[in-house]
Amino acid sequence: MATIITIMAADHRRCDEIFSDAENLVSTKDWGEGGKAFAAFRDATLNHFAMEEERLFPAFEQHIGHAMGPVQIMRMEHNQMRQLLSEMEQAVADRDDTRYLGLSETLMMIIQQHNMKEEQMLYPMMDRTLGEAGAEIAQEIHSS
């Protein structure tokens, strides 16, 4: 059975790998491929945020009947990451690898501590609270 934790954690790992590809390419100043890899990473990340903000979080909050502090914090951290992504986009446009690598290091730290909180606490909590409904959403996300 699909669970939120397995599907979403796998998506985290997928984003990490595209992130690494983009960073490796930018560090060799391969802006052609690096720019493409960055765009792929940005799209994958924004898509992940959308799955959470439009599907998972509302379903969870609807189920428990109120807006939840930790979920709010996840949304806020998404915004922090969106801001970094747009700064990185500028660095790609400016061909500024030093700036890109400083930003990507920062983004990596916030992504990982964000993922830690989701994978260790929030997703398991959602799986247990939502039960079958959660599995369905996970399956839908997986096949979309």
């Binding site: 428990i64 939840m68 502090g69 930790p70 914090i73 996840m74 606490m121 929030l122 909590m125």
Partner: peptide, 9 residues
């Protein structure tokens, strides 16, 4: 799981 005690700040 106790949702009330979770703090991610």
């Amino acid at each position: 799981l106790n949702t009330a005690s979770l703090s991610l700040e």
